[in-house]
Amino acid sequence: MSETNPVMEFLLNRRSRPAKLLRAPVPDRAALAPILTAAARTPDHGKLVPWRFVVLERGALSRLADLVEMRGTALGRDPEDIAKARSAYDGSHLAVVVVEAPQTSDNIPEIEQTYSAGAVCLALLNAALASGWGANWLTGWPVFDRSFVETGLGLAPHERVAGVIHIGTASSTPPDRPRPEVEAITTWMPE
């Protein structure tokens, strides 16, 4: 192709913005709707929709920050780990939790549903960035604690967090990080 494709240009140059550098303003519900809609267009074998969204606004994030501290203390975690995990919620103004919600299927293995949930995270991240917002995909130990996700996020016992996508206004542009050399990670199979 001789013309520059704006979508490829975006993908070749996209960069997440560190969550700790995201500030208000954040997208309101009307601005977030097309971002969520774009993320929901992710490949989904069998049309099972094995994921869902939980949008965390400022009040919910504050409540979850307190729960992080309570759970971290109960689990005997290092105070530094607790403080770091707490700051991800305390310092955020908007986050979308992508919940992996596997469906029973004779044809679609659960691992494919897991991959689809991960793809939703990337699609959500890219849709937020393409919309002009800063965004970052995080997890951290709290989302692997059943008590935290069931009490704080309302997850069912069979559900897991695939990612927490923080969205806001980027206060600065970080330098690009090293990227893999495609030749080093690609194998070509001859005919």
Score class of each variant (00 low, 15 high):
E9N: 06
E9T: 14
F10D: 01
N13S: 13
N13I: 01
R15A: 08
K20T: 08
L22W: 01
V26D: 01
A31G: 08
T37K: 12
A38Y: 02
A39R: 09
A39H: 05
D44L: 14
L48N: 11
L48E: 10
P50L: 07
R52A: 03
R58H: 02
A60S: 10
A60Y: 01
L61H: 04
S62A: 12
R63T: 14
A65W: 00
M70Y: 06
A74R: 11
E80D: 15
A85I: 04
R86H: 00
V98N: 07
E100A: 13
A101T: 11
A101M: 08
N107I: 13
N107A: 15
I108V: 15
E112G: 03
T114R: 14
A119C: 08
A119W: 03
L125T: 15
A130G: 11
S131I: 07
W133Q: 05
N136V: 07
T139F: 00
T139E: 01
T139H: 00
W141Y: 00
P142W: 01
S147H: 07
S147T: 14
A156C: 10
V161M: 02
A162L: 00
T169N: 12
T169I: 07
P180D: 05
E181S: 11
E181K: 11
A184H: 14
T186I: 07
T187C: 03
